[in-house]
Computed example of a mutant assay.
Amino acid sequence: MTKETIFGLSLFPYLAFLWFATKSQQFPKLSLWGFYGTLIFVAITIPAGIYAQVQYNDVLANVDWLHGSAESFLTITNILLVLGFKSALENE
């Protein structure tokens, strides 16, 4: 099984997690936005990787401006996660 296949299959458990997290209504809303943002990060990274391969004939990790932009979005989602859970702990 290729790494691409494993990556694709890993989306199903994550989507199930998002579904249960949303349905439970026990997750802080801001953190839930962060988890959904992580899914958007994946959706952005895939075309960015293809663009890096086609335009620069290199992997995404080696195209600094493109990789840095994608990672910046991931940083934002991580901040949302932390702030959401921090807020939930403070409100306990």
Rank of each mutant, 00 (worst) to 15 (best):
L39W: 02
W33C: 08
Y36S: 07
T38M: 02
G37A: 00
G49E: 11
G34V: 05
Y56F: 15
V54G: 02
T38G: 04
W33R: 04
A43V: 09
L39G: 02
G37D: 01
L30H: 03
Q55N: 03
I40S: 01
D58H: 11
Q53S: 12
F35D: 03
V63F: 11
T45K: 12
Y36V: 03
V59R: 13
V59K: 14
F41H: 06
W33I: 08
V59S: 14
W65S: 10
W33F: 09
A52L: 07
D64P: 05
F35K: 00
Q53P: 03
L39Y: 09
T38E: 02
L60W: 09
Y36C: 00
Y56H: 14
L32T: 00
A43Y: 03
G49A: 12
Y51G: 06
A43C: 10
F41M: 04
I50E: 11
I50Y: 13
I44T: 03
I46R: 11
A43I: 07
I46Q: 02
L30V: 09
D58I: 05
Q55T: 12
V59I: 07
D58K: 15
N62D: 11
W65E: 11
I40Y: 00
I40W: 06
A61P: 14
I40A: 11
L30I: 10
Y51P: 05
P47Y: 08
P47F: 13
W33N: 04
Y51K: 10
D64M: 06
Y56S: 10
Y51Q: 15
T45C: 10
L30W: 07
N62E: 12
T38Q: 00
